[in-house]
Design a protein around this nucleic acid. Structure first.
Length: 665
RNA sequence: GCCCGAAUAGCUCAGCUGGUUAGAGCACUUGACUGUUAAUCAGGGGGUCGCAGGUUCGAGUCCUGCUUCGGGCGCCA
C-alpha cells in the first residue's frame, strides 16, 4: 500500500491516472515516515505492504478496524488522502480523518465542507470513537482528541504545524471497501509475515537531548546533517540538527546497516535524514546522549556537496545574506531565529499579563502623513496608462481604494482609538518605510511593537517601557540559554552579562535639559555641537548611557520643535512629554510620548507642522469624545534583536531582509 | 541621498613597486588512521582574477565606466 496526497479534489480518478500519480509521487513517499496502526488481518497486511512500498510503518496494532498513519503534515492535502494497494488500485476511504498533533494536543482536521457528513457516518457505526481511541493509543496518552472540531480549525492547525510537527490520519476501514477485497493478495500476506514492526516515537533533537526521553528508549529523529565523521572501527558519527535547539544530536551509525556504504557514507553537510535507534548516554565526550542508530533513511542527499554553501565553518555575514534561504541552517541563524521567536512570544506574554490587548492595526493606510517618513505607495493603477484629472494630476479616485493608499509606517494613530476604549492595547506587526537609508540599522520592512495606555502620563509610560524591556530580556535569558551561550562565545562576549546588568538595576531618568547640561560639561569632543534645542545624536546618546550613567537611561521632555505633532505640550510650552530610552551599546531603543489629548493644542501643533487638521477627522474625534491623557511608545523589534544577539547588521535579524535596493528571496 | 573601501577556487583569504605555469586553509574526492567532536595525516580534482573598455612588449596588479557588496554619515525604529 502506498499513500499519497491528492492535489486534485474528489476521488473520481481512473485507476491508470492514480497509478501514474503514485509512481510520480514515489520519490517523496520514500522520504516519508509513516506510522501506522492497522487493524485486522487485512489491515496488518496493508501496513506491511506499505513498508514494502517504501512507506515505513513503525507501529501497528491488531484487532482494530481502522488504519492510522502518521505522515509528514506537508504531505497532506488538507484531509484528502488517497490510499492505494501495491497494484495501484485505489483504496477509497469514504472520508479520511486527519489529526494534527502538536504540543500534546490532538486537533481534528476535517475535510473542508464535509465534516458533518463524516461525523454522522462514523458515529453511526461507532467507529468514530474507535478512531479516537487509536489516536490516543499510538500518539501517546495525555493528548486531547477534539473529535468535533470544525473545519475552522483547519487553517489554524495546519499553520501551527509548519515547522516540526506531525499529522495523523485515522481512517476507518469499512467492511467491503476495495482494500479488504484485495487484502488476500499474495504479496501482501508475504510482506505481513516477513516484517516485524517496532514502536518508535518521533522526537525532536531537543527532546532527545533534554532528558524528555529516557535512555534506552527507541526514538526517531529527523533533520539535517551538520557533520559526518567516519571511524574504521565500523561506525560513522553523524551530527543531526532539526533546529529545535542549538545542539545537534550525534547519531552513531554502525557500518552493518544495509545502506551504510550506499547512502550513509555519502552524507554531507545539509543532507536530510531520518534516524531511528536507541537513545543512549554517549560513550564519547561532548554530548550527554546519542542515538545508536538501527535505521537511517536518507531523504535527500546534497546535490553537489562541493558547492553547497553552508559548510561547518564560519562564514561571513555578507555571504550568508546572499543565501538567505540556506542560512537558517547555520548555528548562528538558527539561534537568531529561536531568539526572535522567543522575543516575539515574550512580548505577547508580558503585555497580556499586564492586561494589554493586541490590536491588529491596518497595514494599508490612506492617511498620507503619519509623520514618520516616506511611505510605499500601494496602487493597482496601470503605471503605463495613468488616469488623469483635467489639471494633469493623477486621478486616484480610479485607484483601488478610491484614494491614495500606502503601506503603514506606524500603527500608533490607529491603536490610539482602541486605547481609548480598551485602555491598555498594543499593536505589533510589520511596518514599512520607503526611506533610502543605507545603514546597518535600517530596513524597509521591519516589525514594531507599540503599546498605548489610557489614563497614563509620561512617567507611567516610562515605567511601562522599563518593565517591558526587562521582561523581554528575562524571557530570553530564561528560555534560550543555549543560544545565548553561543552568542556570548562566538559573537559578543558580554551578550549575557550585559542583559543581566540591564535587568539588575532601575533605569536612570533625566530631563532633556539636564542631559544637555551634562553633555556640555562632559569635556567630550562631539562631532555635533551640543546646544539646547538640538536633537540628540547617536554620539550624545551613547555618551549619556555608556560613559556618564553606565546603564539604561530615559531622557524625557524634549524641545517641542524637534518632536512629532501628536506629542503633548508641557506647561512650559517649550517642551513636549516625549521620552527616549537609551541603552549602553545601542543608543535609542525605545521612543515614546504622552499624546496631546487637548483638541485645541493638537490642532495648533498640526498647523505648526504643516498638517491639515481636516485630514485627521477621526483622530481629532478621539479628543472630542471622552478624551483622556494617554501615552505610549514604540520599539523597533529587529533593533532590539540585533542588540540581544550581538549582531552588527539589522539585515541579519529578520529572515528575508528588505532594504533599499534589496528584496531578493 | 552623501563620502570611503572592496570584488582572486564552493567558502575565508594571500598574491609587494606590472614580469614565466595565480597560491594557502577549509570544503569536495581517494587512501591511511581513529568512539570521533569544525578529528588528524598523505595524494587528487577545482580559477575567463566581478563585467566592459583603455594604457603597456606584457595587466590579478595601473586608468576609466558599470555592477554588486561592505563601512561611515544623514533620515529614523
Amino acid at each position: 500500500m502506498r499513500q499519497v496526497s491528492c492535489q486534485r479534489p474528489g476521488w473520481a480518478q481512473t485507476e491508470a491516472e492514480l497509478y501514474d500519480e503514485l509512481r510520480g509521487s514515489h520519490k517523496s513517499l520514500k522520504n516519508m515516515t509513516v506510522r501506522g496502526v492497522s487493524g485486522s488481518a487485512d489491515g496488518k497486511a496493508l501496513a506491511a505492504t506499505a513498508l514494502a512500498g517504501g512507506v515505513r510503518v513503525v507501529e501497528h496494532e491488531a484487532g482494530i478496524e481502522a488504519l492510522a498513519l502518521e505522515i509528514d503534515y506537508r504531505a497532506i492535502d488538507q484531509g484528502q488522502v488517497l490510499v492505494a494497494d501495491d497494484q495501484g488500485h485505489a483504496v477509497h476511504f469514504h472520508q479520511p480523518i486527519v489529526f494534527a498533533h502538536r504540543l500534546g494536543q490532538i486537533h481534528y482536521i476535517g475535510k473542508p465542507g464535509a465534516t458533518g457528513a463524516l461525523d454522522a457516518e462514523t458515529n453511526a457505526s461507532g467507529r468514530w470513537h474507535r478512531c479516537q481511541e487509536i489516536a490516543h493509543a499510538f500518539i501517546g496518552g495525555g493528548g486531547d482528541v477534539d473529535g468535533h472540531g470544525s473545519t475552522s480549525n483547519l487553517d489554524g492547525v495546519t499553520q501551527g504545524c509548519r515547522g516540526p510537527g506531525r499529522a495523523y490520519i485515522i481512517m476507518p476501514v469499512w467492511p467491503g471497501t476495495p482494500q479488504r477485497a484485495n487484502a488476500s493478495h499474495p504479496s501482501r500476506r508475504n510482506a505481513a509475515n516477513q516484517q516485524e514492526f517496532q514502536a518508535m516515537a518521533v522526537v525532536s533533537v531537543k527532546q532527545a537531548l533534554s532528558g524528555a526521553v529516557e535512555a534506552g528508549d527507541t526514538v526517531t529523529v529527523r533533520g539535517w546533517v551538520r557533520t559526518r565523521r567516519d571511524s574504521k572501527a565500523g561506525l560513522s558519527f553523524v551530527n543531526v540538527t532539526d533546529g529545535s535547539c542549538f545542539d545537534p544530536i550525534q547519531a552513531v551509525v554502525p557500518a552493518t546497516l544495509g545502506n551504510y556504504d550506499s547512502e550513509v557514507k555519502h552524507l554531507t553537510a545539509g543532507a536530510s535524514l531520518i534516524v531511528s535507534g536507541t537513545l543512549m548516554p554517549s560513550q564519547g565526550k561532548g554530548q550527554a546522549f546519542e542515538i545508536q542508530a538501527s535505521d537511517v533513511v536518507v531523504t535527500g542527499l546534497v546535490d553537489d556537496p562541493e558547492t553547497y554553501p553552508i559548510q561547518p565553518k564560519q562564514h561571513s555575514m555578507e555571504f550568508l545574506r546572499e543565501v538567505a534561504h540556506l542560512r537558517p541552517r547555520t548555528n548562528l541563524f538558527g539561534a537568531v531565529t529561536r531568539v526572535r521567536h522567543t522575543m516575539m512570544t515574550a512580548i505577547h506574554r508580558h503585555l497580556t499579563k499586564q492586561g494589554f490587548f493586541w490590536i491588529n492595526t491596518p497595514i494599508i493606510t490612506t492617511s498620507d502623513a503619519e509623520g514618520a517618513g516616506d511611505m510605499f505607495r500601494l496602487s493597482t493603477l496601470d503605471l503605463a496608462n495613468l488616469p488623469r484629472l483635467p489639471d494633469g494630476k493623477i486621478d486616484f479616485r480610479k485607484d483601488f481604494f478610491g484614494r491614495e493608499a500606502f503601506l503603514t509606517v506606524s500603527g500608533q494613530l490607529n491603536v490610539e482609538a482602541y486605547c481609548l476604549a480598551l485602555s491598555k492595547v498594543y499593536t505589533f506587526g510589520p511596518t514599512f518605510r520607503a526611506e533610502n537609508s543605507n545603514t546597518a540599522r535600517h530596513l524597509a520592512e521591519f516589525w514594531m511593537v507599540e503599546p498605548e495606555i489610557a489614563f497614563a502620563d509620561l512617567s507611567v509610560n516610562a515605567d511601562c517601557a522599563e518593565a517591558f524591556l526587562k521582561a523581554i530580556f528575562k524571557a530570553i535569558l530564561d528560555e534560550r540559554p543555549d543560544d545565548m551561550a553561543f552568542f556570548a562565545q562566538r559573537v559578543q562576549s558580554d551578550a549575557i552579562t550585559r542583559m543581566e546588568a540591564f535587568i539588575a538595576k532601575p533605569f536612570e531618568r533625566i530631563d532633556y535639559t539636564d542631559a544637555i547640561g551634562i553633555l556640555k560639561k562632559s569635556g567630550e569632543k562631539f562631532e555635533f555641537p551640543v546646544a539646547w534645542g538640538i536633537d540628540l545624536q547617536t554620539e550624545h546618546e551613547r555618551y549619556l548611557a555608556e560613559k556618564h550613567i553606565g546603564r539604561p537611561v530615559v531622557v524625557m521632555n524634549y524641545p517641542e520643535a524637534i518632536k512629532a505633532f501628536y506629542m503633548r505640550l508641557n506647561d512650559d510650552e517649550k517642551t513636549v512629554a516625549a521620552m527616549d530610552v537609551l541603552a549602553p551599546g545601542i543608543g535609542e531603543i525605545i521612543g515614546g510620548s504622552q499624546r496631546e489629548e487637548r483638541l485645541d493644542h493638537l490642532d495648533r501643533r498640526m498647523v505648526q507642522f504643516g498638517l491639515d487638521p481636516s485630514n485627521y477627522g477621526w483622530y481629532r474625534d478621539l479628543r472630542r469624545y471622552g478624551t483622556v491623557p494617554h501615552a505610549g511608545f514604540g520599539l523597533g523589534f529587529e533593533r532590539l534583536l540585533v542588540y540581544i544577539c550581538g549582531l552588527s547588521n539589522i539585515r541579519d535579524a529578520i529572515p528575508y531582509p528588505r532594504a533599499a535596493g534589496t528584496a531578493e528571496f
